[in-house]
Lab assay of single mutants.
Amino acid sequence: HDVTIHAGDKTIHVHGASEEFLRIIEQAKRDGIHEEELLRLIEELVK
């Protein structure tokens, strides 16, 4: 999957995102996670 995530003034493109990655991001959004926290989460996941 190619994913584009908008968080605040940043746009992150993730190529080859796994289903698990997508679920984590969707869950985080539903939980109302702060955008900066979401960015950190994404950066950890894509290392």
Rank of each mutant, 00 (worst) to 15 (best):
I5M: 05
T11H: 14
E19G: 07
H15F: 11
V46P: 01
S18Y: 06
A7Q: 06
Q27L: 09
R40L: 13
G16R: 02
S18H: 06
H15I: 14
G8Q: 05
K47E: 11
L39A: 08
S18T: 15
V14E: 02
E36N: 10
V46N: 07
G8M: 05
G32I: 02
E37D: 13
I12E: 02
A7R: 03
G16I: 10
F21K: 01
K10Y: 12
I42P: 00
H13A: 06
A7C: 12
H13N: 09
E26G: 03
I24L: 12
G16D: 11
L22M: 12
E20N: 06
I5T: 02
E20D: 13
E20S: 08
G16W: 11
A28H: 03
H13Q: 12
L41W: 05
I42Q: 00
L22E: 06
H34D: 15
T4S: 08
L38W: 05
E35T: 13
R30A: 15
R23F: 11
H6K: 07
F21N: 02
A7N: 07
Q27E: 11
I33Q: 03
G8A: 08
R40D: 07
E37W: 07
D9N: 12
E36F: 10
K29G: 06
A17W: 12
I25C: 04
H34Y: 09
E19I: 11
L45I: 07
Q27M: 08
H34L: 14
L38C: 02
I25H: 00
I12C: 03
D9A: 01
V46G: 07
E37C: 06
K47F: 13
L41M: 08
I42W: 08
I33N: 01
T11G: 04
D31N: 11
I25W: 07
I42R: 00
A17V: 15
D9V: 01
E20A: 08
T4D: 05
I42C: 03
F21H: 06
G32S: 04
V14P: 02
D2M: 15
L45R: 01
E19T: 07
L45E: 01
V46S: 08
A7D: 04
R23S: 09
I33F: 10
R40S: 09
T11N: 07
H6T: 14
K47H: 13
D9Q: 02
R30Q: 13
K29M: 15
A17P: 07
H13T: 15
L38K: 00
I25N: 00
K47T: 14
F21Q: 08
D31Y: 04
L41E: 00
D31P: 01
H13V: 15
I25G: 00
E35C: 08
F21T: 08
H15V: 14
L45P: 00
R23D: 09
A7S: 08
T11D: 08
I24V: 11
D31I: 03
H6N: 12
Q27S: 08
A28T: 01
H34S: 15
E36A: 13
R30P: 01
E35G: 15
D9Y: 03
G8V: 05
V3L: 13
L39R: 05
R40A: 14
V46Q: 10
E36C: 11
E26N: 07
V46I: 15
I12F: 12
L38G: 00
E35H: 13
R30H: 12
I5V: 10
E19V: 11
R23K: 14
A28L: 12
E37R: 04
H6Y: 07
E35S: 14
H6R: 03
I25E: 00
L45V: 04
I42H: 00
R23N: 11
R40G: 05
V46D: 04
H15W: 11
I24P: 00
G16V: 10
V3K: 01
T11E: 11
H1Q: 13
A7K: 03
K47C: 15
E19C: 05
K47L: 15
V14R: 01
D2C: 15
R40M: 12
A7L: 15
I33R: 02
I33H: 03
D31S: 07
L41C: 01
R30M: 13
V14K: 01
V46R: 06
H15M: 12
I12H: 04
L38R: 00
G32Y: 03
H6D: 08
L45H: 10
K47N: 14
E19F: 07
F21W: 13
F21G: 01
H15T: 14
I12Q: 02
L39Y: 12
S18I: 06
E20F: 06
Q27V: 06
H1W: 14
K10M: 13
K47D: 10
L45S: 02
H34F: 10
L41V: 03
G8K: 01
V46C: 09
H34R: 13
H1T: 14
R40H: 10
A28N: 01
E20W: 11
K10W: 10
I42L: 09
E36Q: 11
E35R: 06
R30W: 09
K29A: 10
T4A: 06
E44D: 11
K47Y: 13
D31H: 06
E43Q: 10
T11C: 02
A17S: 04
I12R: 00
T4C: 08
R23T: 08
V3D: 03
T11Q: 09
E43G: 05
L22P: 00
V14D: 02
H13G: 02
I12A: 04
E37M: 08
E26I: 05
L22T: 05
K29E: 09
V3Q: 03
E36V: 12
S18F: 05
L22N: 05
A7V: 15
E37Y: 06
G16K: 06
G32H: 05
E19Q: 11
I33D: 01
R30L: 14
G8N: 06
E19R: 06
A28K: 03
I5A: 02
K47S: 14
E37H: 07
T11V: 15
H6C: 10
V14F: 12
K47W: 12
G32L: 04
H6A: 09
H1N: 12
I24E: 05
I12N: 02
H1Y: 15
I5Q: 02
H13K: 06
E43A: 13
L39F: 13
G16A: 09
I12V: 12
A7G: 06
H34K: 15
L41Q: 01
K47P: 05
T11F: 11
E43C: 06
E44A: 10
R40F: 09
L39E: 06
E26V: 02
I25P: 00
K29F: 15
L41I: 08
K29V: 15
E44H: 10
I25F: 05
E26S: 05
D31T: 07
E35K: 08
A17T: 06
V46A: 08
A17E: 02
